[in-house]
Design a protein around this nucleic acid. Structure first.
Lengths: 340, 340
DNA sequence: TTGTAGGCGTTATCAT
DNA sequence: ATGATAACGCCTACAA
């Protein structure tokens, strides 16, 4: 609550000296330093960063914007961001959008109004244009989700290839009716700008590519675009059970969805992997723990975070823009493995 | 990038007028308004909140400090915080401490340096003193975890009672060797200040109370204070298996730990609930989805968040301090239910 | 209705 | 080595 001026007065020096003691102590006589520090203590002074930031045109803070923190996946990405940020003495703040455009705009405002030096977006849709616009004047990086605008730095895996790998994996094991579970991936598919619809759209492309290669026709009645949660997975299974012919495999765009599906199948007496194979996405902790353990596409989450932060620093200092694609991996577990 | 001054110049008015157009339009002539707004558009002006906040001594932002976002539990609490915050036009930022005191201090600095108007702490240990000190001059609320300092507003469940209920539930079903899995709860137990060691310490007290009431002696070889993750739960089971006599029930302080334990038990051919009952904590989504589904103590997460934010507002405006205890519930599921 | 000017708490550029 | 003083971008009496 005490201000620098008061400290200066108390110590019998000028504000300039106080500032120096705090920022470049070597340029102040030892004795004066002590006086000032004593005053700081006595008045319980803490600097007001608003003033400092205002003056210095930088905050040493960045913002991470994500849909929700309930998704295990992001925790590790954020860890990567934080570790890299700390190297440069930056702090990492987070903000949640809950899939509401309104909240993304709020986040954008935070950057425009100089509360932070830049931002990493891990959200899809809802505001591509505004983010693009923002990117023209402020440092922005996108992570995990693809973006259309090539002027925006972006780091993610190759979602098409990843989905292709998963689908192909299933086909090679004799599966031909492969259900797809995820979000919105069949919306507005006539539009050219597929990347606008996020990673899910890309994964759908990879899936189709694998099917076509194997001369299997795409059956859109096998698409269940409910969402990524346990509940979405389970609820998709209720729909699946209405089909005349059941699928022989499910490819879900999230581990949670996959597990929800397995659970719902079990309830109906349908066994995984005996009756149906299931593949998830993200390789979160649960995929190893659930029974049966889950075959899934692993993303290098920590590395994504680390890289995103690096790109943001480059953007903050030099306006360099670049995009990076990191390797995924298919982790085989019991949900696609028939015991001998 | 444009400043208010430039807008004023462009519009041929004074900065005061520009400010007024933006903040109290009714006090400006329609025509002048239009001129100014045109200038704002033309120059792509966005206000700099550093200046604004500095001047107004408020930011309309609060900070939520949590250990990790990988814990499902917090997502819902944060949702409650956000919903209430939005009512008052506040934004919610989050920061992660990863259980490092260093990071808590960083968070404390954020408040002292006026980047936010107040903070909600959902972390234990590591910095009680500093938070107490902070609370004297800045608005602070603690949630989920108990705090010693009665001057700090706090909202949580009655952890003693909750653990008592869970333990008693098991005892009533004939269980007598009940293992405990959680964090650090047996550390420094000689110290008076039990609340310093967080909810886990309180839960241990409730557990003991139930045992004593049933004239069962407390066996500390049944304590497994590894942590709250899947891995911790599983790894605790390896230790449990080394015991001469297995427990007939496990009470874990997290759902994830409980599920990790069940999984590890299954691997060894030990069945839940037939051979061992398991109870978790938090009633997260997974507890319903796992097989067997998990009996657990449910916390009113959303309500905790909502209430915490309310308390913070009271603290911000009037320096009112109060603590609130919310109701928990025991949710019975398959992990403690023998099929007929 | 609008403009002038002072101040919010810092830092940085001058002098001294 | 230290002190005045002018920014930084904004808001708000007070005056006009």
């Amino acid at each position: 609550m005490a201000t620098m001026k008061e400290v200066a007065h108390y110590a019998g020096v000028s504000v300039a000296t106080v500032s120096r003691v705090l920022n470049q102590p070597q340029s102040v006589k030892k004795k004066t330093q002590e006086q000032v520090l004593k005053a700081v203590q006595a008045l319980n002074y803490t600097p007001n960063f608003l003033g400092k930031n205002l003056r210095q045109h930088q905050t040493k803070r960045i913002l991470v914007v994500l849909n929700t923190i309930s998704n295990q996946f992001y925790s590790r990405v954020v860890q990567g961001i934080e570790d890299k940020a700390r190297e440069f003495d930056y702090n990492v703040l987070m903000m949640t959008t809950r899939n509401l455009q309104k909240n993304i705009l709020e986040a954008i405002t935070m950057i425009q109004t100089k509360i932070v030096d830049g931002a990493i977006f891990m959200t899809t849709l809802h505001a591509e244009e505004q983010i693009s616009e923002l990117n023209r004047n402020y440092p922005v990086v996108c992570a995990c989700e693809p973006v259309e605008d090539t002027e925006i730095s972006c780091v993610s895996i190759d979602n098409i290839q990843a989905a292709y790998d998963a689908t192909r994996f299933l086909i090679e094991r004799g599966k031909r009716r492969i259900a797809l579970m995820g979000v919105n991936f069949d919306l507005k598919k006539t539009d050219q700008k597929i990347h606008q619809y996020g990673s899910a759209a890309l994964r759908e492309i990879g899936y189709k590519k694998a099917l076509e290669e194997a001369h299997i026709s795409v059956d859109t009645t096998l698409f269940f675009p409910k969402g990524l949660t346990y509940k979405d997975g389970a609820s998709s299974v209720w729909d699946i059970l209405k089909l005349k012919r059941l699928p022989d495999a499910i490819f879900a765009f999230s581990d949670a969805g996959a597990i929800g599906a397995i659970r719902a199948l079990k309830v109906r007496g349908i066994r995984v992997p005996e009756d149906i194979f299931v593949v998830g996405f993200d390789n979160t902790a649960m995929s190893e723990v659930y029974q049966p353990s889950l075959t899934t596409i692993g993303q290098p989450q920590y590395m994504i975070g680390l890289t995103a932060m690096e790109l943001l620093f480059e953007r903050i200092s030099g306006h360099v823009t670049k995009s990076i694609v990191l390797k995924h991996e298919l982790v085989e577990r019991d949900s696609t493995r028939l015991s001998v």
